[in-house]
């Protein structure tokens, strides 16, 4: 069957099998920033933004994304122009092995997109589905708190309110 989706702003068509998982389709097409940690929807390493919501792509049939807008970690920023979340994750020490980080970047970005002024409690809630075994989460929460401030500044600048 055919799957039509927009990935990071680019329209894509795939030939898929009904039982293909979205994670496999994405990784196979080169979006390897999307990671496989459990295949049961418990660790969040495969998180993507689908139509504005952070979801685990490992337990989503690819077919379920038909017509959807997908953002992967690659669509959020790149090494030359990282997003505030990506910048702060690096600077605040939120990254050790980094395997969980694309998923955390995605969850945090989806949160800030939806709720630009999250409290620490809301940040913790949004990241609850992203397991990290390296950092103990302390610096990841700090990083996202800083990214919220940074996003506010840049948004302010964009709107000319600074």
């Amino acid at each position: 069957m055919k799957l039509n989706v927009a990935i990071n702003g680019e329209a894509k068509e795939f030939d898929i099998h009904p039982k293909d998982m979205l994670l496999d389709v994405l990784r196979d097409d080169g979006y390897t920033g999307v990671k496989r940690g459990c295949s049961t929807g418990d660790c969040g390493a495969c998180a993507i933004i689908l139509d504005g919501k952070a979801v685990n792509s490992c337990i989503l049939f690819a077919a379920q994304a038909e017509g959807g807008k997908i953002t992967t970690v690659e669509g959020i920023g790149n090494p030359k122009v990282p997003s505030p979340v990506q910048r702060e994750m690096t600077d605040a020490g939120g990254i050790q092995c980094g395997f969980c980080v694309p998923g955390i970047v995605v969850s945090a970005t989806a949160l800030i997109d939806e709720n630009p002024e999250p409290t620490e409690d809301e940040i913790r809630e949004a990241l609850d589905g992203n397991l990290c075994r390296c950092t103990g989460y302390v610096k990841q929460i700090e990083a996202i708190t800083l990214a919220v401030k940074e996003t506010r500044k840049t948004r302010g600048a964009r709107l000319g309110v600074a």
């Binding site: 920033g33 920023g77 990506q86 994750m89």
Partner: peptide, 10 residues
């Protein structure tokens, strides 16, 4: 390797 990990490039 921070930024490469944060952007999924690593």
């Amino acid at each position: 390797d921070g930024i490469c990990l944060a952007t999924g490039v690593a």
